[in-house]
Design a protein around this nucleic acid. Sequence first.
DNA 1: AAACATGCGGACCGGCGGTCCGCTTCGTTG
DNA 2: CAACGAAGCGGACCGCCGGTCCGCATGTTT
Lengths: 184, 184
Amino acid sequence: MRSDATRNREAILRAAEELLDAHGAEHISLDRVAAAAGVGKGTVFRRFGSRTGLFQELLAERAAALAEAIESPGSPLGPGAPPRERLLAFLDELAGLAERNLALFAAHERACAADKYRDPTYLRWHAHVTALVAAAAPGLDAEFAAHTLLASFDADLARHVMAEGGADRLRASVRGVAEALLRA
Amino acid sequence: MRSDATRNREAILRAAEELLDAHGAEHISLDRVAAAAGVGKGTVFRRFGSRTGLFQELLAERAAALAEAIESPGSPLGPGAPPRERLLAFLDELAGLAERNLALFAAHERACAADKYRDPTYLRWHAHVTALVAAAAPGLDAEFAAHTLLASFDADLARHVMAEGGADRLRASVRGVAEALLRA
DNA sequence: AAACATGCGGACCGGCGGTCCGCTTCGTTG
DNA sequence: CAACGAAGCGGACCGCCGGTCCGCATGTTT
């Protein structure tokens, strides 16, 4: 990749973030993103393929730290931790991510509305949760339960719950459901 | 309402159904609906206000029987039945509704994506489930758990689950999660 | 039949995601 | 350094969509 391409790519991602923070998930057209990045619209599409691609990459970037934490041993998130605690810790972490990136979650959802089950980040999260549910609650349909648990972080639901009580309220509610499920 | 207005209203609803059955939830623009109904586009908007309004009414129509069943005593769905059984029966019924109206569910979701929590049908369902969860599992955040349970009928998830096993598979998975939750 | 309210259709608008292509810039090679 | 091909760029352009508007038609009432 040419150096100007790399620079532009970064500029576009940062511009998208700024617009999300400033105006929420609505009215973020790719024209605007391009303008804010000081770049032509074609450049946005060349780098990211589509609106969907842009928000997928942005989410992947924001989720990178979590993805790494999941794979490195030694924390309650990493391999080696007992599945139940590992799952609860992961959900806690997701709640934090959702809080810090509500607008991005919303935009990403909207952009991936068509077959959301092909988003790489969602797929990773789902595989992770499925495995942990299967280990901690063998009686359940783990795949289905994993979708159900992840649905807690739907942007609208998360916003609604966090409106009274912030991320802690979301964490508590999710934990309540998760613990109930694992008791099975 | 003038008689021709009533007639057109019906024609539009039927046309929308036909298009949904024929082409799925995608590519159903209101231009197409209007054309299929043999009506001008303005008429669609005068009757239903917006795309959202159209699909909300269509869903309300398809959900009417269920809404009635919920309120009339004597069945496992109606008042008087024990909350746990009443909830499970309701979820079973919703699975059937989802199966018979997958395309409509998808279109409705897409149309109500902005603040989905203001859709009258969803609100009714949510209030119902919340009350039953509160009665059957006092320890839980009932409102939150209700959103979680209803998320099982997200069109994409439902389609994905029903792809192998049809509505019965969906019913079984939902029931598994619901029973686990109620055990709390 | 006349007069009024209601409803109608479809041209029109602004905005969007996505494409295309002539021009510019980068970086490599001799 | 000159020059050349590849990679990238920008923004005009396209088709489509949700939504609006208003001159005309149709139903209703007296």
